[in-house]
Design a protein around this nucleic acid. Structure first.
Lengths: 133, 133
DNA sequence: TAAGGTACTCACCTTTTGGTAAGTTGTGGT
DNA sequence: ACCACAACTTACCAAAAGGTGAGTACCTTA
């Protein structure tokens, strides 16, 4: 296998060169990166991360923000993201309960990469779904 | 609601500001961007896009590359990506059959955003899954 | 002659994901 | 006295995603 052979038909500036070791690290089944990728690219994971990238928000705000999410999925998604060290949970001992969620530093790193992706999806969604080139 | 109020506890340089209109466009249920986002962040979609970012590849190469994918899912994923105008399918009328897949210009745009994300996941996967801060 | 590669599709079944509705706890409002 | 609110959990069910194994057509290699 010769890694220097690129399809001649593709414009030079469009090619994405994979960083050293990425391919070997991501493509194998059951590798850690696949698990993490599954967490952060999950249906609701992206939306919650995106919402929190605007700043700390409480449970009920997130629920209204990510329109269509069920309470079960919000709880589940937040738990996963918290376990992964992407989201910080701050529970106030007050009545009625108040819990604030925010991104950790790691979470902000991630959301910095997620925002361009979502922006692109937002800008291209109509063309893509209408079958326009 | 005051958009200028940011959590004071977060370092200025970590905040990700959402582009104008993004929040309204992405958060509503059933909006086009959610559909597109689901396609490209699907379990196998990311891997296929990533593999193709290295250049044109044929069916059997992709199958071996994205370790663990079934033929059914490879076919399905490629079809979705082709319909979305991200992947180009070139079938040679030869025996045995030969079909080459490559990214379209739109696909390369996307993979340019996907690569940093996957790279980040790859670099942070072990820390995340081991519960390290 | 038989097996194997190539790029698929199809039918069937399992696993995962996600939704619904109810229950919980304690206080404040009517 | 009773309902609502907040942030959840739990049990149950439906839907979607995904895997398995077979079949297809034709040629090449052993």
């Amino acid at each position: 296998m010769d890694a220097t052979v690129w399809p001649a038909s593709l414009p030079e500036d469009l090619r994405a060169h994979l960083p050293e070791g990425l391919a070997d690290g991501v493509f194998p089944a059951g590798c850690p990166s696949r698990t993490v990728l599954d967490h952060i690219t999950s249906k609701w994971g992206v939306l919650i991360l995106l919402a929190l990238s605007e700043g700390e928000q409480r449970w009920s705000e997130l629920r209204r923000r990510a329109e269509g999410i069920s309470e079960k999925m919000l709880a589940q998604t937040l738990k996963t993201l918290e376990r992964d060290g992407l989201v910080l949970r701050k529970a106030q001992p007050v009545i009625p309960p108040r819990v604030d969620y925010s991104l950790t530093q790691r979470g902000y790193e991630l959301s910095g990469l997620l925002v361009p992706l979502v922006t692109w999806a937002y800008n291209n969604a109509d063309d893509i779904l209408n079958g326009e080139r």
